[in-house]
């Protein structure tokens, strides 16, 4: 299976929200990284068919998805950003409703719901009101509804926003499980969400795809530019003005700064292995 995005461009009036986006996706997880306003949501809205691109085409296995119509929508599962769903619905009611609008035949509804609840570990919360679920449980319910129609393409928009670390890990595990036989596109601005599980990472900035590749490939682009510098507290201000600081770590009586810099920073600087966050930060600061 191959999802191909060709020259996807979106204008709102004269403002370009997405500029000539190109990408080819096959089975696996793709991280779509970018700050707020980078065009992630616009891209997702185009892929799920809620927005129409001003230019470009989306092809699924060579077929234009516009021509596929509802057949294409049947292959897509989507989890929106910060969903609260219907608080007055019970979990089972909500999933039944989603089955109805996804056109899942009545005879398959119960088995599908049972299947997804087990997968997202919500079987015990079957009769709970959606409003009574914790943030993590609600996100898992969101994943559950997204896979009810057994989609080939799973789109997740900021799925871990507001989750505690435990839930975030649980969520990542579920996504990894789901990525075996489908395309998972995970849009986020939290680098750690995609760092270890993404097959490929695409970084968007101001509507443009500025970099893409595997985590390793991207990290290589900033190799030799990441430094650890240990400084006293009084010098921190000076470094912050002069360099791009990726992280600050407190040592016993000093502070260790993680600096992104083309050249070796002042002081005792030690070159360290880059992370995806360093890549992201360096791109955003350019």
């Amino acid at each position: 299976m191959e999802l191909k995005l060709e020259n996807i461009t979106k204008f709102y009036g004269k403002q370009c929200a997405l500029d000539n986006f190109n990408g080819v996706f096959t089975e696996g997880i793709y991280g779509l990284l970018g700050p707020n306003g980078a065009g992630k949501t616009t891209l997702i809205n185009i892929i799920i068919g809620v927005l129409e691109a001003s230019k470009g085409a989306i092809l699924l296995d060579g077929s234009d998805v516009k021509k596929m119509g509802t057949k294409y929508l049947d292959k897509v599962g989507y989890l929106p950003q910060e969903p609260t769903f219907y608080k007055n619905f019970r979990v089972d009611e909500f999933l039944k409703y989603m089955c109805a609008i996804k056109g899942i035949p009545s005879k398959h509804v119960d088995s599908r719901i049972e299947e997804v609840l087990e997968l997202v570990n919500l079987t015990d919360s079957y009769k709970k009101k959606v409003g009574a679920l914790s943030g993590g449980m609600r996100q898992r319910l969101g994943i559950g509804q997204a896979i009810l129609n057994r989609p080939d393409i799973l789109i997740l928009d900021e799925p871990t926003a507001g989750l505690d670390p435990g839930e975030r890990i649980r969520f990542r595990n579920i996504i990894s499980k789901l990525s075996k036989d489908r395309i998972v596109l995970l849009a986020t601005h939290i680098v750690s969400d995609v760092e270890y599980i993404a097959k490929e990472v695409l970084i968007l900035k101001k509507g443009k795809l500025v970099k893409k590749g595997t985590t390793k490939e991207l990290e290589r682009t900033v190799e030799g530019k990441i430094w650890n510098v240990t400084v006293s507290e009084t010098d921190v201000e000076k470094y912050m003005h002069k360099y791009l600081i990726a992280n600050i770590k407190r040592l016993e009586d000093k502070l260790q700064l993680r600096i992104v810099s083309e050249s070796r920073p002042d002081g005792i600087a030690e070159a360290v292995a880059p992370s995806l966050e360093d890549v992201f930060l360096s791109i955003m600061e350019q």
């Binding site: 809620v50 929508l73 989507y78 950003q81 969903p83 769903f85 219907y86 609008i101 056109g103």
Partner: peptide, 21 residues
């Protein structure tokens, strides 16, 4: 308004029977 505030509008519209719904 509720559909928009809960972000359900996009979820519904991206479903097969979404626009109809």
């Amino acid at each position: 308004v509720n559909e928009k505030n809960t972000n359900m509008d996009k979820l519904i519209l991206s479903s097969i029977k979404g626009k109809f719904s």
